[in-house]
């Protein structure tokens, strides 16, 4: 796509296809680059400890699940959990700093860029960062040989991207209505923790009683894991389109709400 830049040219390309959000993405990338190693370690440590601690420690006491050791079973859940965490932290704490504390967004809005560019840049950035977190866990999986089939496990990459976009969109919507950092605790308590415990990270969601299973089916993480787990175990997931659409729908709905709510917050 070509965007001729000087005066007036910035709008020549149709609105939806504009790449004018890229400078916002790039700004976040440059900041991240300065602290890339500690940031990656921070993202990795928590899910890795869950996977290795529970996988080895608890795994010894458990029978195989569906014919695979518990550690192998846990791997896919850990990927999704890690991606969700990374996208959520980025769009809550980090984006809130930029929006509310540092006024970075306000400064950008004084340039030709609009709020849509800012939010699109943040959305794609958070998804990019969570893609890195997902890939980091994937490298561990490959390193330990937890995947049943290497080629099939490559299918995790698009799942990671979708999951990242899903939780980044939801996170931006929460960010838009948040008065302070403390508010995010509600989101973790009411949304993230239930997802981790009911979405099938640690055990197959099918083990839940029917009514709880029905509730868990509404959670986006359940759908991410429904795609990721078979891919680690060397199988083609069932209902790929359905699960993919649910993740995308949550992400788009979150992003749309974020646009509406942030406009109300900053530009009125």
């Amino acid at each position: 796509m070509s965007t001729t830049r000087p005066a007036g040219g910035i709008r020549l390309t149709p609105h939806v296809f504009r790449l004018t959000f890229l400078p916002v993405w790039h700004r976040n990338f440059l900041v991240w680059k300065k602290l890339a190693i500690p940031s990656l370690l921070g993202n990795l440590a928590d899910p890795m400890l869950y996977m290795l601690g529970l996988g080895y420690g608890l795994g010894r006491l458990l029978p195989d699940i569906g014919g695979v050791p518990y550690l192998n079973f846990l791997a896919a859940g850990t990927v999704c959990y890690s991606v969700m965490n990374s996208a959520t932290f980025e769009t809550l704490y980090s984006a809130f700093s930029r929006m509310h504390v540092q006024k970075t967004w306000a400064a950008i809005l004084n340039t030709p860029l609009g709020l849509r560019d800012v939010l699109l840049g943040e959305w794609v950035w958070a998804a990019s960062k969570s893609l890195l977190s997902g890939i980091a866990i994937l490298l561990v999986i490959w390193g330990l040989g937890l995947q049943a089939d290497f080629v099939m496990s490559l299918g995790l990459l698009p799942v990671i991207v979708l999951t990242g976009l899903c939780f980044a969109g939801l996170g931006l919507a929460i960010n838009a209505v948040s008065p302070n950092y403390d508010f995010f605790l509600y989101y973790f308590t009411l949304a993230i923790t239930p997802m981790v415990l009911l979405g099938g990270v640690f055990y197959p969601a099918t083990e839940l009683p029917a009514w709880l299973k029905a509730a868990a089916d509404w959670l986006p993480l359940t759908h991410a894991i429904a795609l990721a787990r078979p891919l680690v175990l060397g199988q083609l997931p069932q209902d790929i389109l359905w699960h993919g659409m649910v993740l995308l729908a949550y992400g788009l709905a979150g992003f749309w709400a974020a646009c509406r709510l942030t406009r109300r917050r900053l530009l009125r």
Partner: peptide, 11 residues
């Protein structure tokens, strides 16, 4: 957006 191409702001 076009107008702000030619504008500077000291907030």
């Amino acid at each position: 957006s076009q107008a702000r191409m030619r504008v500077g702001v000291v907030p």
